[in-house]
């Protein structure tokens, strides 16, 4: 099932929030691709625009936020025998966020798992009700069939005693079970892309490991692509093949995971990696932190937004928007240090 076929292309995505206090450029230039059946990791600090990027793809950005620019090209393949043939490409950014077309994609072809499995599930509806709802919405099945399917998917996500838990309310389940239910809900219609927005952040480490294992297993079984959003570089290393690093709404670096860990080019990525504690290091040494604070979103620094905190900042960084440069094949960075590279493009 896994082929090197593009599933989603995000090109120059800009999602802004015009607030009373000023314009917040939540996503201000995101470029990446998600391959069919593969996992893309998205890393960054809180407020860097990871979640808004995900919301933009599903077109569920909360008002007053809206997509200003960019393309979200979603490739649909129709299955004919063993071969996949490209059926059509649809630009999600052009769809009416309340329209029928995007609603047939949501929960059906692109599904999402949220961070807080407690608050993200309705407290007054049973797990079964919330899972079968998606199935009944997107597939023409009877209620009894939908319940069968819900039981099957609950079984697949390793929910203990599915025939009991299906009639449980979320508050009766543990955090890990709730997140399993959430994943079951997202996978109930066999989406081709699963967006996981910090799915393990609210869980303890043991449960986190179980959920991560489960997601990898399900990906093998069902073949969906995963966009895995996290602030945890360790989780990315475990889950993803390629990763993008975001800072203040911009994708600053994109590479496969190994390259990113061993040969990071953007000063921000390098600083992030230095701030991870290592078990081999001298324990008396101070852990390195990125100096300075994340700037106020209403007053972003001019030029490269990272320059006030950057070790390698030069005078130019204050004025010039850094170019998006392919520093090596399939390894991109948004930094002036690599502006001389031959493949520099003028993209914002």
């Amino acid at each position: 099932m896994v082929g090197n076929k593009t599933l989603l292309e995000v090109k120059g995505l800009k999602t802004y929030f015009p607030l009373d206090e000023g314009l917040v450029r939540a996503v201000d230039g995101a470029d990446f691709e998600i391959q069919q059946g593969r996992t893309l990791g998205v890393v960054g600090e809180s407020g860097c625009g990871k979640s808004v990027t995900a919301q933009s793809i599903l077109r569920i950005v909360p008002p007053p936020g809206d997509i200003l620019e960019g393309e979200l090209l979603f490739h649909r393949y129709s299955k004919e025998g063993d071969a996949f043939s490209m059926a059509d490409v649809i630009d999600l950014a052009k769809l009416d966020p309340r329209g029928r077309e995007i609603r047939t994609i949501r929960g059906n072809e692109i599904a999402m798992v949220f961070q807080e499995p407690m608050t993200s599930l309705s407290p007054v509806h049973t797990m079964g009700n919330q899972i079968t709802e998606a199935i009944l919405l997107h597939q023409e099945t009877s209620k009894a069939e939908a319940r069968e399917k819900a039981l099957d998917i609950l079984h697949r996500v390793g929910m203990p005693k599915p025939s009991q838990t299906i009639d449980s309310y979320p508050f009766e389940l543990s955090g890990g079970m709730r997140q399993r239910g959430m994943i079951a809900m997202a996978l109930s219609c066999h989406p081709s892309l699963l967006i996981a927005d910090e799915p393990t952040t609210a869980l303890d480490v043991t449960t986190e490991a179980q959920i991560l294992d489960l997601m990898r297993q399900l990906q093998e079984d069902l073949g969906m692509a995963i966009m895995f959003i996290t602030h945890d570089l360790g989780v990315i290393a475990e889950m993803a093949e390629t990763a993008v690093v975001m800072y203040l709404g911009k994708v600053v670096e994109r590479a496969d995971v190994d390259t990113l860990y061993y040969d990071a080019r953007h000063p921000y990525t390098q600083a992030l990696l230095r701030s991870i504690p290592r078990i081999t290091e001298d324990r008396r040494k101070w852990l390195e932190a990125i100096r300075g604070m994340v700037p106020d979103p209403y007053n972003l620094p001019s030029g490269c937004p990272f320059h006030p905190r950057c070790r390698s900042a030069q005078g130019e960084c204050r004025e010039v928007e850094p170019p998006w440069v392919e520093v090596e094949p399939d390894h991109w960075a948004r930094c002036i240090l690599y502006a001389d590279s031959t493949t520099a493009t003028a993209q914002g």
Binding site: L58, I60, P62, R103, T104, S120, S122
Partner: peptide, 15 residues
Amino acid sequence: GRAYVTTARAKGLSE
């Protein structure tokens, strides 16, 4: 503003 509303929207339900 609750998260479960977003979940329902992400499921494809009409407003």
